[in-house]
Design a binder for these strands. Structure first.
Length: 526
RNA sequence: GGCAGGGUAGCUCAGUUGGUGAGAGCGCACGACUCAUAAUCGUGAGGUCGCGGGUUCGAAUCCCGCUCCUGCUACCA
């Protein structure tokens, strides 16, 4: 099946301590749709997701819960993160955990290589430390003191003075890569996208990079530094490496060569790690940099960035329990321009579900299949002479399929959906204008009636194929109802880039009853 | 503070290099139709294009000032 080009796509790995919310799910769904699209188009596709399980925070919560960090992570992976993938119907090819042996050993290999090549040195990390937090504070949590602490730097959480402490750390010579990174952004404008994200990254790197502290010795929950086991690897350095350790770096070179480099889908909050630190790490190791790093936007709820602390965090199941996973997948990818921030509201979700999925696509399938059943006993009629209006529909389908593929390649997922939806809209208009119910009243119009319904049916066939990456459940039902599974084979085996070609649904196939693809949802429930 | 992006119909957003009366979807009103999930199709109402100046024959689109919002300004995943 995999004939074409290698396509490797990743999501960020989830920090297991978080609670899954629709922001995580959004990233997953976007990557999944793109992966499914490429897979069904015949590309040699691999999609990866997973969990990030090291670091001091996890050690602490595990201890607080009276267990070990590994057991704590196991529990969260099993009870929270893998279920999330089920909830939104993700078809990932692999799931890596940073506690996997394959990951840890390859991280050490990578680190040793950088050390041997002189990219890592021992230094002193000096920073402000909060006794209350028991940790070094990032700039964002350091504020100027007031009252008795006037003139001192204090912890934003405890409002108490910070101590300047030193700790022996290993440092990565990231500063060596400033120029090479800038050259990369310049030579490959697509490396960081969208444009706004690219600009921010460039602006940041132009200020100059300093070396990165990549080890910690104050706790031990992490990958051991191979030449000094009193240190563990800084979580980000560890986590980023999942993208190569999962596909065989250092262990299965042929697979690694087959998959790497990857397209990384990330939230814009972690863009810098992926667009600056990560390529610098790869350069140091003599490996190819990623194919692309795409930073998508925030989900805004009530005009604000969604967050747990503001109680705007929404669990994916809150949506899927009512609307289903297909609607979840469709809504976020259709309503939000991928790459920009987008507003979420229950009203908008509900309205789009009703207008686009139920009344638009679902009802279209319903009315066409009902008419074929009523007027042709469910047997797919043969088309006769095509008129201009029929040919116009064929052209719409062809164009939509081509446009959608182009958009997916550019990660403009919302544009792809808009293109595909022109088929839904045009088909609904075509049916109303052609009035098959009127044609059916006179046997003399049988040929014309057959042509109209065949055109509508083959349009549905194209829709099922084109929408299967986004709406896997609904399109499967439709595929069955069209009788296509029996004649054309499984939906996921239908070549996506051929979907726009007309007359694929064999005449003589038998359609069967179709339950509502997207049943109306009573407002009282929602 | 610096840098970047943005403020366009009730809502969410498009608006190429300035030029036919400013657009889409949803919502709303009216009409048509009845195959369909009380669905569909058509028509229409509705906008000081953040504010104030300026350039121009002509600006939402260029320039200046102001105002409001958002992001970035490194080691939090």
């Amino acid at each position: 099946m995999a004939s074409g080009n290698s396509f490797y796509i990743t999501t960020p790995i989830f920090y297991v301590n978080d609670a899954p919310h629709i922001g995580h799910a959004y990233t997953e769904v976007a990557a999944d749709v793109v992966a499914r699209w490429h897979r069904q188009a015949g590309d040699d596709t691999w999609s990866l997701t997973g969990t990030d399980e090291h670091g001091e925070k996890i050690l602490r919560t595990a201890t607080a819960n009276g267990t070990t960090p590994k057991k704590w992570a196991d529990k969260l992976v099993t009870e929270a993160w893998k279920p999330l993938l089920e909830t939104i119907n993700i078809a990932n090819d692999d799931f890596i955990r940073t506690t996997d042996e394959r990951h840890e050993s390859s991280v050490q290999l990578f680190l040793q290589r950088l050390y041997d090549d002189g990219y890592i040195y021992s230094g002193e990390y000096e920073a402000l430390y909060c006794v209350g937090c028991e940790e070094f504070k990032p700039q964002s949590e350091i504020v100027n003191g007031t009252g008795p602490f006037e003139g001192q730097k204090v912890c934003a959480i405890h409002s108490k003075p910070l101590e300047l402490l030193k700790e022996k750390n290993y440092f990565f010579r990231m500063s060596d890569f400033t120029e090479r990174l800038l050259a990369l952004y310049e030579e490959r404008p697509d490396f960081v996208q969208p444009e706004s994200a690219r600009n921010e990254v460039i602006q940041f790197v132009r200020q100059g990079l300093s070396d990165l502290s990549i080890s910690r010795s104050s706790f031990d929950w992490g990958v051991k530094v191979p030449w000094d086991d009193s240190h563990v690897v800084y979580v980000w350095f560890d986590a980023l490496l999942n993208y190569i350790t999962a596909v065989g770096y250092g262990q299965d070179e042929s697979n690694f060569d087959r998959r790497w480099p990857a397209t990384h889908i990330v939230g814009k909050d972690i863009l810098r790690f992926h667009a600056v630190i990560w390529p610098a790490m790869l350069m140091a190791a003599g490996l190819e940099v990623p194919k692309q790093v795409f930073g998508h936007g925030w989900l805004l709820v009530g005009g604000e960035k969604m967050s747990k602390s503001k109680l705007t965090g929404i669990a994916p199941t809150e949506i899927t329990d009512t609307f289903g996973s297909d609607a979840f997948r469709y809504y976020f990818l259709r309503a939000i321009a991928f790459g920009q921030d987008g507003s979420f509201s229950w009203e908008d979700l509900s309205a789009r579900y009703q207008a686009e999925l139920a009344n638009g696509f679902g009802n279209l399938a319903s009315r066409v299949i009902a008419m074929v059943t009523k007027y042709f006993d469910g047997v797919v009629p043969a088309p006769a002479e095509y008129t201009d209006v029929d040919l116009a529909i064929q052209a719409v389908v062809q164009k939509a399929a081509e446009d959608a593929d182009r958009s997916i390649n550019a990660l403009a997922i919302h544009d792809a959906l808009a293109s595909i939806w022109t088929i839904v809209d045009e088909l609904n208009g075509y049916i109303t204008d052609s009035e098959p119910w009127a044609l059916a009243k006179d046997p003399a119009n049988a040929a014309r009636l057959g042509t109209v319904l065949y055109t509508a049916l083959d349009g549905l066939r194209a829709l099922a194929v084109l929408l299967s990456p986004v709406l896997p459940q609904a399109t499967d039902k439709l595929w069955e109802a069209l009788g296509a599974a029996a004649t054309l084979g499984a939906l996921v085996d239908q070549p996506l880039r051929e979907a726009g070609r007309f007359e694929q649904l064999p005449e003589g196939s038998t359609v069967s009853a179709l339950q509502a693809l997207f049943p109306r949802i009573e407002p009282a429930v929602a």
